[in-house]
Amino acid sequence: MNKLINFIKGNLFMVIVVLAYIILTIVNPQLGLQGIKNSKYYIIEMLMIMPVIFVLTALLDTWIPKETIMKFLGKDAKIKGVILSFLFGSVSAGPIYAAFPFCVMLHKKGASIKNIIIILSSWAVIKIPMLLNEAKFLGPKFMMIRWILTIIAILIFSWIGSKIIKDEDLPQENEEEKAEIYINEKACMGCTVCTKKYPELFIMDGKKASLKKYVIYDSERLRDTVMSCPVKAIQLNNI
């Protein structure tokens, strides 16, 4: 029962959507059916882009060092970061939510809030295939003016956004990673065995062991380290 409540709490939006479908179908079966039919296009759109976005994000996460991202998209990247962000957003594909995992990864590696907002916004509105379509249906003049105004607007509100939002406002840790390795701080007696066995992953934080953030770990080595902890303070899930 508790599990069910937690699931509903964690997926409130999904529960609301399902309820909306049930109610709508009871009131007007035609509309409920239409809703599902409409979703088909979006599911295909999603399947075409999301798998590749996840793999690309994970690969870039693995191979591009934090320093590089910081240098090109961080707070001190200035105009270079802004131009790069616009480029990333413009050559992208897929709906705006496809940019979410990509931008989360960039932010974790040191990209600034301002550049993240630029990538998300340009991903949404100034994609090149979209601009071509716009010129075709609404005329090149319309498209050009809107494009220029949109870029100016994005520049202004990404700057405003970076003044309002602090880096700490974003979720700090990847939930999956957090769920996979967990250190029971009450049990840890600070023997430093884990930091010696796997210094890339574990670090001493005062007298207790703690996890270094965002590293890729080798599951065998990790298991070995977990076994060697004398008080079994490191716990693993789903590895």
Partner: peptide
């Protein structure tokens, strides 16, 4: 996706 579908319906 299903939210968009129902909104469009």
């Amino acid at each position: 996706i299903f939210a968009i579908g129902i909104i469009l319906a």
